[in-house]
């Protein structure tokens, strides 16, 4: 539809703004709005699965990770302003302008090459997938059919990469060995109204996450999006509750065992006599549930790693100011 031009223009404006603004917090807010526009654009381009994933990731989780990581580190505004007036900074601004012109030129050359040589090669894969995905896999959503049946190894490596990313994050943030982290995370509860109403909302959000996971092969959504919704319950809990009864080590073990389950279950695709038409749909639902739980554990671990790091930084700051 022609409305998408408006969204594209807003996206370009927000990208420029988030690069050029000085304060990092504000750049992150711009990035959140950018990803909202991005997701609505995907929806208009007939990709509701992608739209769900981008909305879940971009506007809430990535924004939260950025904000927790830069909290307490942002420079004071006055300091930056006085830095901008010095002649050294003027030279730096001139350098920025120069590199901007260079990159505009390179981009223009690449675009002219692209639009000069693009050719239509047809869509044989599209024809095959769209014709036969219902009879081959039993799914009603072609995207789920592809990432859980035709190209399941992609999904396996994606899950592995998420696991490795989470392990690397926990490693870099120096998770304390042997201590019980649930004692360390002390939350500062939000206002009473938010706490009460989000307490009312938990069961519905959980129910909705399970609905998205289990219906992943029929409607847009699936394991990843539903798992992110379940992880958002943890995030809301952090803001609402006084005490978090969460043990991160148990979550990590659960994530690894869910990953093993995904590998074992996807190996069943190698046994064709086992996969009759009833079992295919059951297999899809089971895979979606496992992926959902794995992603839920993983994203919750990511969020709490950063939260733990931030509380540690605030503790050391307070100690150095006091002492």
């Amino acid at each position: 539809m022609p409305v998408t031009i408006v969204f594209l223009l807003a996206m370009v404006v927000l990208a420029v703004a988030s690069i050029q603004v000085r304060k990092a917090e504000i750049a992150v807010i711009y990035l959140g709005i950018f990803s909202l526009f991005n997701a609505i654009f995907y929806l208009f381009y007939s990709a509701p699965d992608l739209s769900l994933a981008e909305a879940v990731i971009g506007s809430a989780l990535a924004t939260a990770l950025f904000l927790v990581a830069i909290k307490g580190y942002t420079l004071r505004r006055t300091q930056i302003k006085s830095e901008y007036r010095s002649p050294k900074m003027r030279l730096a601004l001139f350098g920025e302008l120069f590199w901007g012109v260079v990159f505009l030129t390179i981009g223009f050359i690449v675009i002219s090459f692209y639009f000069g040589t693009v050719q239509d090669v047809g869509k044989p894969a599209w024809y095959h997938y769209v014709r036969s995905f219902i009879s081959d896999t039993g799914a009603r959503n072609a995207v789920t059919a592809i990432y859980l049946n035709y190209r399941v190894f992609d999904t396996l490596f994606e899950a592995l990469l998420l696991l490795v990313g989470i392990l690397a994050t926990a490693y870099f943030l120096e998770w304390p060995e042997g201590k019980e982290p649930e004692e360390e995370i002390a939350t500062k509860p939000d206002s009473e109204i938010v706490a009460r109403i989000s307490g009312l909302l938990y069961p519905f959000i959980l129910l909705y996450g399970f609905y998205i996971i289990v219906n992943g092969h029929l409607t847009p959504g699936g394991g990843f999006q539903g798992g992110a919704i379940l992880a958002s319950v943890f995030i809301i809990r952090y803001f609402a509750q006084r005490r978090l009864g969460i043990n991160i080590f148990i979550l990590q073990r659960l994530e690894k065992s869910f990953f093993l389950g995904i590998i074992a279950l996807s190996m069943l695709l190698l046994l064709p006599e086992f996969m009759n038409s009833d079992f295919k749909v059951f297999h899809l639902v089971l895979m979606n549930i496992l992926i959902g739980f794995k992603v839920c554990c993983g994203l919750a671990i990511l969020f709490f790693c950063f939260i733990f790091q931030q509380t540690k930084v605030e503790d050391t700051k307070g100690r150095s100011e006091r002492g």
């Binding site: 007939s46 990731i57 894969a125 599209w126 997938y129 190209r151 994606e158």
Partner: peptide, 25 residues
């Protein structure tokens, strides 16, 4: 529409969030 790019790009979004988290850490 062609479902193949969408399925591949869902993978890309998941890998994107994990790489962003590592960079932030």
């Amino acid at each position: 529409v062609d479902p193949l790019p969408q399925a591949l790009m869902i993978t890309a979004i998941v890998i994107g969030i994990s790489s962003t988290a590592v960079a932030l850490a």
